[in-house]
């Protein structure tokens, strides 16, 4: 935690906090994200809202209870003795509390439900779960963020801490914050999860992405949430 505190102090001294990827987008894309009628991600949110009713989530939850949830996740899950993220929680409710068949990870339905739930927190600042039992995962996540990997031997930090704001060929390198997921990427022509983004960055440096359910993703997500603390939830964000 000392490192986070030092970082926060350093940023305060500079008068700068984390900057969302939104800030470096073109005015056209920013306008598209802001306008619910132009933002294609809102189609998934609407589908998620319908699923929330149809799939019986309303048997236990009101939509109002979903406000602020995405701003806090990942949280500590006692049953798993480790972090659980929003997609994991929704899957857990379906499988363990409803006895329903699991939705394939990152299926359109799973993305729609996550987009709907996260959209209930849009505009709220990320306020990561302070539970100290998450610290080991956050530390592991930070170590993974700083570790160079792949044939190109690059770390997340080299791009997103050291070179954010510069151009990697045609792409502006964002600070790499996870405050807009699931989000609509023009390059994907669809809604995608944070895991998909992380896999793309890993494959981009020619490294072997972690297997789909690897704890490394949760560790990175827990660290990214702390790193982006204070940025507002943008779900469904737009990115190039």
């Amino acid at each position: 935690m000392r490192r986070f505190a030092t970082l926060a102090l350093a940023l305060l001294a500079l008068g700068a906090g984390p900057r969302s990827g939104f800030e470096t987008m073109t005015p056209e894309l920013q306008a598209m994200q802001r306008d619910d009628f132009a933002n294609p991600g809102m189609l998934w949110v609407a589908e998620g809202e319908a699923l929330f009713q149809r799939q019986g989530c309303t048997g236990c939850h009101t939509p109002a209870q979903m406000v602020g949830v995405a701003a806090r996740y990942p949280v500590f899950d006692a049953g798993r003795d480790g972090p659980i993220d929003l997609a994991g929680r929704i899957a857990q409710c379906r499988e363990q509390r409803q006895g329903a068949a699991p939705l394939p990870t990152e299926s359109p339905e799973a993305l729609a439900l996550a987009a709907y739930v996260a959209n209930q927190s849009r505009g709220l600042p990320l306020a990561p779960d302070p539970d100290p039992r998450l610290d080991p995962a956050r530390r592991q996540g930070e170590a993974l963020f700083r570790e160079r990997r792949g044939q190109l031997n690059l770390s997340c930090a080299q791009c997103h801490d050291d070179n954010a704001g510069r151009r990697l060929a045609g792409s502006a390198i964002p600070e790499g914050h996870a405050n807009g997921y699931p989000l609509y990427r023009l390059e994907w022509q669809g809604l995608g999860s944070l895991r998909r983004r992380l896999r793309s960055c890993m494959v981009g440096v020619r490294s072997e992405p972690f297997p789909p359910d690897a704890p490394e993703y949760l560790a990175l997500e827990a660290y990214l949430a702390m790193r982006a603390r204070g940025l507002v939830v943008e779900t469904p964000a737009i990115r190039p």
Binding site: R149, N153, L154, Q158, D162, R206, E208, P209
Partner: peptide
């Protein structure tokens, strides 16, 4: 920052391909 273009040493989790 520059990758080593002719070395396979000291690399972590290189993709299978």
């Amino acid at each position: 920052l520059m990758p080593a273009y002719y070395s396979t040493e000291g690399l972590v989790r290189v993709g299978r391909a």
